[in-house]
Amino acid sequence: MEHDPDLVAAFAALAHPQRLAVVRLLMRHYPRRVAAGEIGAVLGLKPSTLSGYLAQLQEAGLITQERRATSLLYAASVEGATALNEGWIGAICGGRGWPGAGAPGKRVRNVLFLGQGNAGPSLIAEALLRAAAGEAVEAFSAGLTPAGEVDAALIAFLAERGHDTGPLWAKPLGTWLGEGAPPFDIVVTLGDRAASRAPDWSGAPHRAAWRLAPEQSLEALHDDLAQRIAALARLDLAVTPPGRVQDVLDAMAEPVAA
């Protein structure tokens, strides 16, 4: 019986839970490259253990490596994941097993912005998308460790800019998980900490990790997110192919230059 050696290497690399966790983490941050030390700190892996995992994943074509000065940076390989999907779903499964989520069609899309505290960027993003996308999209937000109350200054700032602040409140992630929670089509993490700690999602939604510039004023943060969300709102999600949606989301990973 013949086996594709590339598929065998990729499946073998993913067969260990900690190696799978490395790929999950890098996919959450894609297209950003992550330093080996940061990967180890987030996943609680010793440097010697992590280096072996990274080498095997790189050899299997599932991640890429780049050296900057004395640091080694790693990123998920979308090309490697695509090849694995095509081999598994295509050659092996004969086209069966594609997830049904994310298919174009006329219906309301649910978009979640996930931040560290749901006290600033994620609430701003929720308000911006609700204003920009109209009835075609329902905007949600949550925090991994939400603040008890939303800062009154933030609410006043958004109200001054014409946003409806009534629906804005600090919500824990558990609000949108479990039975009765809305199925999400797009999940966007805001900031590196949220990207590292975000859970896996059922239903195979699009995921994106948007970085935030440090020490931004409310005005600068609002303007940055407004430009990124405007690009998302311009998409007609009823007809846009999923691959194009993901490309647009990934293209907005870095802060917009002032």
Rank of each mutant, 00 (worst) to 15 (best):
P17H: 05
V23A: 09
R24A: 15
M27S: 14
E38Q: 13
E38V: 12
G40M: 09
L54F: 02
A55R: 11
A60S: 09
Q65C: 11
E66D: 13
R67S: 14
T70K: 08
L73T: 08
A76S: 10
N85D: 04
N85E: 07
W88M: 11
W88C: 07
W88G: 07
A91V: 00
G94T: 02
P99L: 01
G102N: 14
G105P: 01
R107M: 11
V108R: 13
R109Y: 11
N110P: 00
V111M: 06
L114F: 12
Q116W: 10
S122L: 07
L123T: 13
A125W: 02
A127K: 05
L129M: 13
A132K: 09
E138R: 11
A139C: 11
A139H: 05
A139V: 06
F140D: 10
G143W: 04
H163P: 06
H163E: 08
G166W: 04
L168F: 03
A170K: 01
K171G: 05
K171C: 11
P172D: 07
L177S: 12
E179T: 07
P182V: 04
I186Y: 06
V187G: 05
T189V: 05
T189K: 00
R193M: 09
A198M: 15
D200Y: 08
A204R: 01
A208E: 12
R211Q: 14
D223H: 10
D224M: 03
D224Q: 05
D224P: 00
A230C: 03
A231E: 15
A231P: 07
L237N: 00
R244M: 14
D247T: 10
L249S: 10
D250W: 11
E254L: 09
A257Y: 00
